[in-house]
Design a protein around this nucleic acid. Sequence first.
DNA 1: GAGGGCTTGATATACTATAACAGTTCATAT
DNA 2: ATATGAACTGTTATAGTATATCAAGCCCTC
Lengths: 157, 157
Amino acid sequence: MPSHEFQSHDHSHCVSDAMNAALLHCEKNSLKFTPVRQRVFEILLSEHKAMGAYDILEILAKEGMGSQPPVVYRALDFLGTHGFVHKIEKLNAFVACEHPGSDHDPAFMICRSCTKVVEMEGSPNSEISTAAKSMGFEVEAIVVEAEGLCPTCQDTE
Amino acid sequence: MPSHEFQSHDHSHCVSDAMNAALLHCEKNSLKFTPVRQRVFEILLSEHKAMGAYDILEILAKEGMGSQPPVVYRALDFLGTHGFVHKIEKLNAFVACEHPGSDHDPAFMICRSCTKVVEMEGSPNSEISTAAKSMGFEVEAIVVEAEGLCPTCQDTE
DNA sequence: GAGGGCTTGATATACTATAACAGTTCATAT
DNA sequence: ATATGAACTGTTATAGTATATCAAGCCCTC
Ligand SMILES: [Zn+2]
Ligand SMILES: [Zn+2]
Ligand SMILES: [Zn+2]
Ligand SMILES: [Zn+2]
């Protein structure tokens, strides 16, 4: 399966896989996957792009699901806590997780041209953990965000 | 020299080394290291901690060096462009660079307890670059920020 | 059916960052 | 020496991101 998310692909699978994983996980852990939370997750799943909280809020508001910031921030907090979405610190924005179910420190590639965001496979940060450990630093979470050009945008430059 | 910046150390060396390197670099490249820029850099050098733009601004204002946000953001932009300071995306805050002179993608350790921030040696992100390259992604800049507990704060927990 | 925990609604506010324009300074070119 | 222009600073206004707080509703359970 070399088709990764920068290339065109059957995106409906991304959506249904992620949503099913989330539904299952909430079911198993008695988490309340409420309409607002579910809708925010759907919105983030619609594309492999990061969205700002206020962009999401605007969509929610149009649909009559809450029009104030705390609504969306609370939903994002829930989704983040349970690993369904990640925050992209560099962009102050949020993306749906592409590796649902697994507990992981995500690492991202952000295309500055098409603005797509893709999660790397396998959390390639053992090197960082090692470097930190060698200084006696105990790592609890790692932010890794690579910005640049995706394969498609390199061609069309 | 295993004394790294989480431990107590002769910090005046950090300050003077960084300031000298900056002065030299500006001299060599005909950059205008103006009073505001120099003072902002000094403020960031005073501790190995990240400071918010408005924290810096507050100090500047007390000293009569400009009291409006653009003043500090412009100074930070200059200092960042020329590699004297880095932004910590996770904190929306800024730190003085600990490896002046070298052009580098920084990588940080952030202690959540004492809030000190230390730059790792050697930009340990070849693993990430490799992973990205294998997907055809061309990396231009990398954010690496590890959050956790520094050696000192692990003991006192 | 009363209590308690969690979710949502709503208001207000805090925090972070930039746009735009005016005034100054300083180096350079005529 | 003066004009020109680029870059820096001052200032006002505004945009964008995030949280604190309190009130009201829902759901589970005891
Ligand atoms: Zn997809
Ligand atoms: Zn993920
Ligand atoms: Zn020091
Ligand atoms: Zn540095």
